[in-house]
């Protein structure tokens, strides 16, 4: 129990600092982490990722849900705090510093430098996710492509595309 809590706290604390461009970038690496430790199987992990997308709230929620499955309420709390606090401290420090040093060229350079890195890393995460979950069924591949295009082209809430995907997935199993 204690060792699981430590592994949740340290693991998600470290991973939180790698979540460039948001929590969803971490889905593949968290998948590897939790399955390697034998905490969750592929199907359960898919379930909590799907839930974190559908349920209202920030989509980092798959992380406390892992904690909940592994170690109950305490696991949920440890995972949540471990994931939230390190970046939040950094964000608050950055916000305070930017008020004073926002005009410095180094700050502007850092801001521009992070864009290509973030875009590359996010694209990599998307590809790993698509490869891991969508390559065996044609309908999943089509959903990946269609949702990518729709999100880029349309201003509608992504919830519509998630709902449509769920409906298509359910129908696919019915026939």
């Amino acid at each position: 129990m204690i060792s699981n809590l430590l592994a949740l706290g340290i693991g998600f604390g470290l991973l939180s600092m790698l979540a460039v461009g948001g929590a969803n970038t971490l889905i593949p690496i968290v998948h590897t982490y939790v399955t390697a430790r034998g905490w969750l199987d592929d199907a359960t992990f898919a379930q909590i990722v799907a839930l974190a997308q559908i349920a209202p709230g920030p989509n980092f929620m798959f992380i406390p849900l892992v904690g909940w499955i592994v170690a109950g309420p305490l696991g949920l709390l440890v995972s949540m705090v471990a994931f939230i606090v390190p970046p939040a401290i950094l964000a608050v420090a950055a916000a305070r510093a930017l008020i004073r040093h926002g005009e410095r060229p180094a700050v502007a350079a850092l801001r521009r430098a992070l864009r290509p890195v973030a875009s590359g890393v996010i694209l990599g995460a998307g590809l790993v996710l698509a490869y891991g979950y969508a390559r065996t069924r044609l309908v999943d591949i089509l959903i990946v492509v269609a949702v990518t295009v729709l999100v880029l082209r349309s201003k509608a809430s992504v919830l519509w595309w998630i709902g449509a995907a769920a409906a298509i997935g359910a129908l696919e199993a019915a026939f």
Partner: peptide, 30 residues
Amino acid sequence: EPHVASAERAVVAAAAGIVLASGLRTLRTI
């Protein structure tokens, strides 16, 4: 339930699309 599991997989596929789209959107800013 098989259709629930299938719907979940489809939602993860949609999540992959959302991640890819946000990567491409960030790429435009370079």
